[in-house]
Design a protein around this nucleic acid. Structure first.
Lengths: 223, 223
DNA sequence: CGTACCATTGACGACGGTCAAAAAACGTGG
DNA sequence: CCACGTTTTTTGACCGTCGTCAATGGTACG
């Protein structure tokens, strides 16, 4: 993917006046090119060279791997503001796709690394971003040993934290995506959500619109 | 933990002539103090300040988290040569214990970071070590969505790669450790190993000594 | 308005968990 | 070095959760 031109931008002057607090994110804003991806379009593939780093502007992204027999594991969902595709080695370990029509900032990895060499704060935040990612994945392994109900609740609580909108949850992903993220089948996800609605912990306004009615109950169910 | 003195070493002269290929590991060798931990001793605890970085000299280490209801998830096993306890933030996310009597090199994180600031190669390898760790955890999430048999086979194949000794596998950890690493019960681990022996893919010389008899079969079972 | 795609619901069975007991391995001290 | 107590591992019986297969219902988009 990304065979286009348009990726290259002159950033030498801009990067000189990088902010001190969120300089990594700011640098990507300044140096990056905005690229649109339509629903289900591949952003990068497993084992492809990791020449770019990405930041979601609008929409949502999933990273995933597919096992030999077709089972798919979704490693993470990325939402507006999230940085992804950052690798220590030079190839991507996961594939990634746009979940909905999505706008993504794309920046050359080499440019970011070069900037990190001179701007200490950028280097520090690259390190910190990688660390956050490591924590996220570690937390995810904890979710994968829980029961189906606990996994679904964990997912809802994770998303309510990350998607703005109070107790209203507008999900961009399908039941199958949720299932592959949680190591369940979509039938089990669907049934579990129905259960949670029956116990009036949540309300399914529509399939993709979920209202968290009783967070206390959800917290208790989260193991 | 680690309230001792003995951690401080003068490394300024030594670090000046650090090797170029495995400088991080070498630096820890030079700067670190060797500390013995006996079987089941805690090395560091969850949420404790991450002031030190560790490298296994001899023995084996597990990192883990315990959920509210007592379920334990082992995040990783570390064997001689492995570096662990490296964090981006300043507290540990997992606890860690010695599996057997173990010797561990301990080095101040601040010292390592200071060295990284001047020695570019050390900084590069810190980055790379963190990246390897991220990959390991990502691979682990893939294991956690498989069937019991596949998980056990994955475990055996991982360990045969990491523990020297050809097809002979001398495991330092208990069935319970393996179970908590794989998200299974120890009964299921035990039964699955018995299955694998019945199909003559492996041989249980003793509980902790396993011989991989048919790697082709094991590879096929690994999904 | 029709056609995919997506989500829900039902029936059923298997995989792996739970509880319990026996067997084996290990370590310690007499 | 053996005997004994503790820990670890194995094996058995049973059951619940979640996966599978299948059909129906809902939603969105051209």
């Amino acid at each position: 993917m990304l065979t286009q031109n348009a990726i290259h931008t002159d950033f030498t002057r801009k990067s000189a006046r990088v902010q001190m607090f969120d300089s990594l994110s700011e640098s990507i804003n300044l140096m990056g090119a905005t690229v649109p991806f339509s629903r289900n379009a591949e952003i990068f593939g497993e084992n492809e060279p990791a020449d770019y780093v990405y930041k979601v502007v609008a929409g949502a992204v999933r990273t995933y791997k597919v096992l030999a027999d077709g089972r798919r594991q979704i490693g993470a969902f990325y939402l507006p503001g999230d940085i992804f595709g950052l690798e220590a080695k030079d190839t991507h370990t996961f594939s990634s796709e746009a979940i909905t029509d999505t706008k993504i900032l794309v920046v050359k990895r080499s440019a970011l690394m070069a900037l990190a060499a001179s701007e200490n704060e950028v280097a520090r935040q690259l390190w910190s971003t990688m660390g956050q990612e490591l924590r996220r994945v570690q937390e995810h392994t904890l979710v994968l040993i829980k029961t189906a109900k606990e996994r679904v609740v964990s997912f809802l609580l994770e998303m309510i934290e990350r998607i703005p909108g109070g107790s209203q949850l507008e999900l961009p992903m399908t039941r199958q995506d949720i299932a592959d993220y949680l190591g369940l089948t979509m039938e089990t996800v669907s049934r579990t959500l129905a259960d949670l609605e029956n116990s009036s912990a949540i309300e399914l306004a529509s399939a993709r619109r979920i209202v968290l009615r009783d967070r206390g109950a959800l917290g208790r169910l989260n193991s």
